[in-house]
Amino acid sequence: MSHDNLKVFPSVRERYDALVLAGDIDADPAQQHLADRFDLLIRELATTRLATKSSALGWLFSRRAPRREIIKGLYIHGDVGRGKTMLMDMFHQLVPAKRKRRAHFIDFMADVHERINAHRQALKNGDTKQDDPIPPVADALAEQAWVLSFDEFTVTDIADAMILSRLFRALFERGVVLVATSNVEPDNLYRDGLNRQLFLPFVELLKAHVDVVNLDARTDYRLEKLNRLPVYLSPLDEDTSRLMDEAWHAATAGATVAPNSLKVKGHTVVIPLAAPHTAAARFTFADLCSKPLGAADYTAIIQHYRTIFIDAVPVLDHPRRNEAKRFITLIDILYDHNVHVVISAAASPDKLYVAKSGTEAFEFDRTASRLFEMQSEEYLAAAGKLEAVVEARSAGV
């Protein structure tokens, strides 16, 4: 695409202004500034693509080629619900790069660990002689995507923390451009984490390859646009149990319901109730969060089931922080993949985690915000389930 042809693509600012004009969102100066900043990055990426087009993969994958000037990506941080993901998704849709990838950061790191494990198995089997898995993994990732866009960039796992510096140094050396959203600024990533001093070189590396932008929008737009639907039910009592059962019957629509299981990385994930023909599954909170499950397990579940019921989410506190951490991961994945979720809980989303200290208390603000938004008509329409919810309403749910 030539620079002139770029004009056929609406810019992020043009797309944003159209939403304002349609009344879908309110104009916000901080969001407008970020939209303009995304457009600057798009123009820079388009110009660089022109300069390297004749060399195919060119300098991106050639260690012997002359080093080009670094293209700095964007790291956008700010409170929940300020529009970070909305604007990043506009950028991702409009950036004229064929090799681009948009992922939740948890999903991306699960993919990285899987690739590393596959390389180690290949080394064990004698299929490769390269001891270090990072270079070939970086090669594969960079060949897949020149522009990487991450939602909810957060680091809470020591296994992730220990490989990020080497992995991203290799990706940046291969010309990969990073765009990310986060609730925290780079200096607060992996805050209070184990052996954090070993993680700090990654923070400096990150800041050298991105421009850091604080999206200080004036309000939480998610809460403004809420239109509650009966998909989050509390407190936990007989009425809530009845409504959950009625919603389940509406969602399964007479389909055969039976237990099922999935094989995920050598272990079994039990699905207590599953209706494969309607892609619906039902769990208790304990099924999903009191067992040693992780992001890969939750991702496997949503690849088979697009309507998830979760019964009996309790109020959580610091002694149950491991369950809270799993619940945070679970909701992130469900939200990011637009899964339709019906939940019964002991309290409203903003009162589910009562501890005031620790990483989980900080991160649960995002979870509460997402649980609120997952009740909105807009979210349910995006999940393709609005008609089913309306039918459930007419049945008395």
Score class of each variant (00 low, 15 high):
N5Y: 05
R13E: 11
E14T: 13
D17S: 10
A18I: 00
A18T: 11
L19R: 12
A22H: 06
D28P: 10
A35N: 12
D36E: 15
D39S: 07
L41K: 06
L50E: 15
S54K: 10
S54E: 04
S55M: 10
A56Q: 02
G58V: 00
R67G: 00
R68M: 05
I70V: 15
G73V: 04
L74Q: 11
T85W: 07
Q93E: 15
V95N: 02
A97L: 12
R101L: 14
R102L: 13
A103Y: 01
H104E: 01
F108N: 05
M109A: 01
A122D: 14
A145Q: 01
S149I: 00
E152S: 03
F153M: 12
M162T: 09
M162Q: 09
I163V: 14
I163P: 03
S165I: 01
L167C: 04
E173L: 10
G175Q: 02
G175I: 01
V177C: 08
V179G: 04
S182G: 07
E185H: 04
P186N: 10
N188C: 05
N188L: 13
L189M: 03
Y190L: 06
D192W: 09
R196Y: 04
P201Q: 09
V203W: 10
N214D: 12
E224F: 10
E224R: 15
N227D: 14
R228M: 11
L229E: 14
V231Y: 04
L233H: 00
L236M: 07
D237L: 09
T240N: 01
S241P: 00
M244W: 05
E246L: 14
W248N: 04
A255Q: 08
V257W: 02
N260Q: 12
S261Q: 14
K263Y: 12
G266Q: 02
H267I: 04
V269H: 09
L273Q: 15
A274G: 09
A274N: 10
A275C: 08
P276D: 14
H277G: 11
T278N: 02
A281F: 05
F283Q: 03
L288W: 00
L288V: 03
C289A: 13
P292C: 01
A296H: 04
I302E: 00
R306T: 13
R306W: 04
R306F: 06
T307Y: 10
I308H: 07
D311Y: 05
L316G: 01
H318K: 09
H318F: 14
N322W: 08
R326L: 06
R326N: 07
R326A: 08
I328Q: 06
I328M: 05
L330M: 11
L330A: 07
H337L: 12
V341G: 06
V342P: 04
V342R: 03
V342A: 10
I343V: 14
S344F: 03
A346M: 02
A347C: 08
P349R: 03
D350T: 02
L352V: 00
Y353D: 01
A355P: 03
K356T: 12
T359L: 11
T359K: 11
T359Q: 12
F362P: 08
F362M: 11
D365L: 13
R366L: 09
F372C: 12
Q375M: 09
S376N: 09
E378K: 13
L380G: 08
E387T: 15
E387C: 00
V389E: 06
S394T: 13
A395V: 04
